[in-house]
Design a protein around this nucleic acid. Structure first.
Lengths: 343, 343
DNA sequence: CTGAAAGCGCTAACAA
DNA sequence: TTGTTAGCGCTTTCAG
C-alpha cells in the first residue's frame, strides 16, 4: 500500500465567502439559500452561481442555533438487525418525505440503559420530535422525554400509558387472538418458543395475552423453550427439535417471531410431521420476506409500516384537526391462519 | 378518545439555569458537564445535583458551534431493507462504541440523486467523518465529499478510485471466483438471476466478473432473468420457475443475493430437481439468517461486519500508524460451496 | 427588496 | 480551581 497523504483539512466555507464572491450581503445570501421569496431574480442568480462555484455547503449547526429550529426527528428502536424495524423506518421515511424533516435513527439493543443514553444524545440535538419504540423506559428517560417540550410518539405497543402520543397494536390482544384461533382449531397441547425476554416487553405481553386466553379455556401452556441472541432459521429449527424431543406430544408451537417459526416449520417438514394435522405452527409479524415456503406460516401482521407512517404524521403535524400531540392510535393486529393452522 | 392536551412547550433549560440554581459560573458548569478534570469535587457535586434536579439536557448545537467539533459520523447506504446493510452498520456501531462518536444513517434507495441530497444534508451538520457505500456518486456529491475536509471512507467495493479511503471487496473478483468454482465443478449451461441494476453497481460488477471468467473458459451465459423491487423468497422462487421454463436445460443458477437464491432453491426442491447433481445454485452475501435449510446454499461471504468495523476505525482514527486517511483496504470475498455446488 | 445589528447557547482562551 | 470575554456562523428583527 503506497503512503497516501491525508486530505487537506481545509476551512469550510461560510456565508461570508459566498457573500464576498457574489458581492451581495450575507443576509441576502442567506435569504437566497433558504429559498425565501423576497429576493430579486437577478441577485438570486448571482448568489446561486457563486455558491455553486465555490461548492458552499451551509452550516446547519449555526443555522439551527440562530433559528431555534432543527429539521430532525429522533427515532429510537431496539435493533436494526430485527427486520421488523426497517419496515417501521420505511413508514417513517415515507411520511416525512416532503415535510422537510429528516429522521435520525438510534439503536438500543433492547437495553433500557442504552436507550436512556440514546434518548439523551438525541434530545441534546434539540430535534423537532421523537419517535421511540415501546412504552417502557427508565425513569430518567421518561422524564427527559416528558420535559422535552417536543412531540413524543411511542410506537409498536399500546398496552400502557404513553408519555405523550402512542401508535401501535396491543400485543396482549395479539397473543390472545392467536390463542383463540389455535383453540378454535382444536389444538390443546401447546408450546411456546421465544427469546429470553428480560427487556423484550412486547414479546412478554404477547405471551401474557396468549397464556391468559389459554387459561380462560382451561388450557395450560404445555412447554416453553427460550433462546438468546438473534433470530434465524437455524435457531428455530434447533429449538423446535429440542422442545419436541422433550415433549413429543405437543400439537401446536407458537413462536415469538416468523423467522424462528419458519425454521421450526422446516424442522417439522423434514421430520415428516403432518402440518397442520399432527402439529400446528404460528409465528408473529407477517414478514413478507418469508413468503415462498411450501406452506405459509400462520402469523399476526403487526402493521409495522403503518405504525411508522402514523407516528411520523403526528410528529410532523400532518394530522390537522386542531389537536396537537397526545394521540392514541391503536391498530388491529390481523391474524393470518396461513397453512399451518387447520381449518 | 378523550381530548388530550398538548404537552407544555416549555423553554428548554440552558447552562445559565443550572448556573443560577447551583451558584456556580456558567463556565464551570460547562466544565463539570463535559467531565473535565479541573473542577473541585465539591463544586462538581453541586453542579451535578442542580443539573439533575432541573433535568437539564445540554444543547449540542450550541456546543458544536462553539467548539467546532461534532461527534457525528455520517453513514450513507442504499437501503435498510436489504439485510446486508444492518450488518455493516453493526460493525460501524461496534467500532465507534467508545470513541465518543455517533453514527447517523441515511438511505438513498439506490438513487444517485437521493444520495447527493443525503450527503449534502449530512455534510451540512459538519460531521467528523463520512462513510458512504459504493464508489459511484454524482459529480456534485463527489466534489462535496472531496472538499469537505473530513475523512471519507467509501465501503463495500474496491473496484475503482476512492475519493479518500475505501474498504471493501472486489465484486469483479467475487463474480470471477464464483464462476471459477462453478466451472471447476463441471457446470456449463449457466443462468444468472438478479435485480435490474441501473444503479446497483456492485451487482453489475459481480456479473461482469462472472461473465468474464466464463468467457475466459469459452462459456457463455446461457440465460438471464431480471427483477425489480425487494428480494424475497417468493421472488426467487418465481424467477427460478420462469427461467427454467424458458430454458429447462440450464445446469446452474447464479443469483445476485442469498434471499432470492434460497427462494430458487425451494423451487428446485419442490420441483424434484436433484441439487447439486442435476442443477447447481449459488447466491451472494453469506446471510447467516438463512442457514437452516436442508441444503446450505453456496454463496460468497461479503465480509460485511468487518467492512463496517474497518471503515469506522479509519474515521475514528483508531488505526495508529502515522497515516491519516487515504487508506485502501481490500478484503477477500470467501466462496463457500455449501451443498449446492457438486464437489 | 436589501442591509446592519444583535444575539442563539455554548466553549476556547486567557486572566485571576 | 474558577471566572471573564469574545466569538462560533447563522437568522431574527428592524431599519432603510
Amino acid at each position: 500500500m503506497p503512503p497516501y497523504l491525508p486530505p487537506e483539512a481545509q476551512r469550510p466555507l461560510t456565508l461570508r465567502d459566498v457573500s464576498e464572491a457574489s458581492g451581495v450581503s450575507e443576509m441576502t445570501v442567506s435569504r437566497v439559500l433558504r429559498n425565501r421569496a423576497d429576493v430579486s431574480p437577478a441577485t438570486r442568480e448571482k448568489v446561486l452561481a457563486a455558491a455553486k462555484a465555490l461548492g458552499y455547503v451551509p452550516n446547519k449547526i449555526a443555522g439551527a442555533l440562530a433559528s431555534q429550529r432543527v429539521n430532525l426527528v429522533g427515532v429510537v428502536i431496539p435493533s436494526l438487525a430485527n427486520m421488523v424495524f426497517p419496515e417501521v423506518l420505511s413508514g417513517i421515511s415515507a411520511a416525512l418525505e416532503d415535510s422537510g424533516l429528516q429522521p435520525v435513527f438510534g439503536a438500543t439493543n433492547y437495553k433500557a440503559e442504552q436507550e436512556e443514553n440514546v434518548i439523551y444524545e438525541m434530545l441534546s440535538w434539540r430535534p423537532t420530535g421523537m419517535i421511540v419504540a415501546g412504552l417502557e423506559h427508565t425513569e430518567a428517560a421518561t422524564a427527559m422525554l416528558a420535559n422535552s417540550g417536543i412531540p413524543v410518539v411511542e410506537i409498536m405497543d399500546v398496552d400502557g400509558e404513553p408519555i405523550d402520543s402512542m401508535v401501535g397494536i396491543s400485543h396482549r390482544r395479539a397473543g390472545r387472538e392467536m390463542a383463540e384461533a389455535i383453540l378454535a382449531a382444536g389444538y390443546r397441547r401447546i408450546g411456546f418458543l421465544g427469546s429470553k425476554m428480560p427487556d423484550d416487553h412486547r414479546a412478554r405481553k404477547r405471551l401474557e395475552g396468549f397464556t391468559e386466553a389459554l387459561e380462560a379455556a382451561g388450557v395450560t401452556l404445555a412447554a416453553t423453550e427460550h433462546y438468546a441472541g438473534g433470530s434465524s432459521l437455524a435457531k428455530g429449527r434447533e429449538m423446535t427439535a429440542a422442545i419436541l424431543q422433550r415433549q413429543p406430544d405437543l400439537d401446536f408451537l407458537y413462536y415469538s417471531n416468523d423467522m424462528i417459526g419458519a425454521g421450526g416449520m422446516l424442522h417439522c417438514l423434514d421430520a415428516g410431521l403432518d402440518i397442520p394435522g399432527q402439529i400446528g405452527l404460528a409465528g408473529f409479524n407477517g414478514l413478507e420476506l418469508l413468503d415462498g415456503f411450501r406452506l405459509r406460516l400462520a402469523t399476526t401482521d403487526a402493521c409495522r409500516h403503518e405504525i411508522g407512517l402514523r407516528a411520523a404524521e403526528i410528529v410532523s403535524g400532518k394530522i390537522e384537526d386542531g389537536l396537537i400531540g397526545a394521540r392514541r392510535i391503536e391498530l388491529a393486529p390481523i391474524v393470518n391462519r396461513g397453512d399451518t393452522i387447520r381449518a
